[in-house]
Design a protein around this nucleic acid. Structure first.
Length: 504
RNA sequence: GCGGGAGUAACUCAGCUGGUAGAGUGCCACCUUGCCAAGGUGGAUGUCGAGAGUUCGAAUCUCUUCUCCCGCUCCA
């Protein structure tokens, strides 16, 4: 039974060192979280699993790590400068906040006419939005034009609209002025698009193929909320899969299935994943069609964990020069800044074309949250006590094995345990921990709670000092399995094979 | 940003008709402990989210501010 509330996850994460609030000693910084000793292992393991499935286990995908600081022209031509800046207006009366363009769209023609007249411009939505933003007393203009409060039949008491920019800007170079800025990327995808030519030229890739990247992205969310679900600094795992126009819809469906299967491979149950075919009116500016994978999170219900979008030829087309020669299907803004045509040979005709793009874009942090949710288990034992177990898949577990001496004040046992820890660590399976709390039951529970799949206990039998003098158990250890709590005796010499098999 | 709720030890929380801070769990040390949160002894950690005000005296009352939770709004 997975976690039921976000609070119990937050509490476990803090207590055991998975995730902490950012800048906490100064009261916290909204929308930031830090990954602790166990969190970083879990997160790295999740990313490694994704990377393995994309780059190593397939033959048609290359990796990339592009920079976070991004040229403003990249994000201008990608359409983000325009779409990531929302003009917001508040109603003083109802205390509600609206996007100015949405608000105006819902007004009657008569109101819009009056507004245009007051602003002394044409009755054109985007022109009016721009004019209102530039106007000193736009709130009064809205009132004078009798802009109605939605859902109520009366004129709203409007504030002047303000721009809310979802992209972080930062100054580049020593001189601070209006021109010397760059953006922190709001998605890793653009780094892939602007490197398309570089990758094609350096790897001789032919369609269809993909470029995958894992990295940080930044969005100045209005309301970061729900633990690591919506944060201002987050990590994405994105694949841009380039294919011949016409094959895009089939690839879109193929990737949808592949991605659902992958999430199941990291432990998510199919019942807690829903596919949302995003309605046309909710699509992003670049998308022809998008499937959102929704995961059933605790407290907040089904929310997006990954978006799988058909971005058509919009992005490569937008970043290309001489667009008129490219037969683009997407509507793109003219680009006189780019120095390249982002094309590749059509697999049959060999003519240069702009490929279509299928983009499975997953949130790493949302993935970690989902994996934790699913793994979190409260179990009532036979003796009536409850234990908390993180039933993580072994390849995701932060600690793979804990080596525990049965008695911590017996040098002959602890020395064997320490040596065994080093020996197992050298197998390269991940992090192995030497654990000497001195109380075997406590150590087991602790490792249940952080998801350690196996605990190995070195006892008196191991060193040939068993009570009943059972010499046959010399050089064996107890291996205790996390989920079943079952124990078995394993020869130290067989441990390598045992663990390699179990921890795959 | 608005409305509501909340911030006390690492976690969960008590204390809140103003009188100088507690419990359980956890953590550390030593002893004990021969496999599922055992026991004993000792110990550390709080400017009671922050700042200001009222008061002889504030965790407690007032104001401001920050953070978190819920709702609205936003969510490429």
């Amino acid at each position: 039974m997975p976690a039921e509330t976000m609070d119990e996850l937050v509490s476990l994460c803090k207590r055991r060192g998975f995730i902490f609030p950012g800048s906490e000693v100064y009261g916290g910084l909204q929308g930031t979280y830090d990954y602790g000793p166990l969190g970083v292992e879990l997160k790295n393991n999740l990313k490694a699993a994704w990377w393995r499935s994309m780059i190593y286990e397939r033959d048609d995908i290359e990796g990339l790590d592009s920079s976070i600081l991004t040229h403003k022209l990249v994000l201008r031509h990608s359409g983000h400068e325009a779409t990531f800046t929302d003009p917001l207006v508040d109603s003083r009366e109802s205390k509600k906040r609206y996007r100015l363009d949405h608000l105006l769209k819902d007004q009657t023609p008569a109101v819009l006419e009056m507004l245009a007249a007051r602003l002394e411009i044409d009755n054109n939505l985007s022109a009016m939005v721009a004019a209102l933003l530039a106007h000193e007393d736009a709130g009064s203009v809205l009132k004078a034009a009798r802009v109605l409060e939605p859902g109520e039949n009366k004129v709203g008491d409007w504030t002047s609209p303000r721009l809310f920019n979802m992209m972080f800007k930062t100054t580049v170079g020593p001189v601070v002025n209006d021109e010397n800025y760059a953006y922190l990327r709001p998605e890793t995808a653009q780094g892939i698009f602007v490197n398309f030519k570089n990758v094609v030229d350096s790897t001789a890739r032919k369609l269809p193929f993909g470029i995958a990247q894992i990295g940080k992205s930044f969005r100045n969310e209005i309301t970061p909320r729900n633990f690591i679900f919506r944060v201002r600094e987050f990590e994405q795992m994105e694949l841009e899969f380039f294919c011949t126009p016409g094959t895009d819809e089939a690839w879109h469906d193929t990737w949808l299935e592949a991605r659902i299967a992958w999430w199941q491979s990291v432990g998510l149950s199919r019942e807690r994943i829903q596919v949302l075919d995003v309605p046309r009116e909710d699509l992003s500016h670049y998308s022809k069609r998008t499937y959102d994978l929704m995961y059933h999170y605790p407290s907040i219900g089904f929310e997006e964990i990954e978006g799988i979008a058909n971005r058509t030829d919009f992005d490569l087309g937008s970043h290309s020069k001489n667009q008129d020669s490219l037969n683009l299907t997407a509507r793109v803004e003219p680009n006189t800044d780019s120095t390249e045509k982002l094309t590749i040979a059509h697999p049959e005709t060999q003519k240069p074309i702009v490929p279509f793009v299928i983009e499975p874009s997953a949130g790493v942090d949302r993935g970690v949250l989902a994996v934790l949710t699913e793994a979190f288990t409260k179990q009532t034992l036979e003796n009536g006590e409850t234990r908390i177990v993180l039933k993580l898949r072994p390849h995701l577990a932060p600690i793979k094995v804990a080596v525990i001496p049965l008695a911590k004040n017996r040098e002959e046992i602890t020395s064997v345990a320490r040596a065994l820890k080093q020996r197992i660590q050298a197998l390269g399976l991940g992090r192995i921990l030497y654990e000497d709390t001195g109380n075997i039951g406590k150590a087991y529970r602790r490792h249940d709670e952080i998801g350690t799949p196996y605990c190995i206990t070195v006892d008196f039998d191991t060193i040939g000092q068993g009570k009943d003098g059972a010499v046959s158990l010399t050089d064996t250890v107890t291996v205790r399995e996390r989920d079943s709590m079952a124990q078995q005796r394993v020869k130290i010499s067989d441990l390598e094979g045992f663990l390699r098999e179990k921890l795959r």
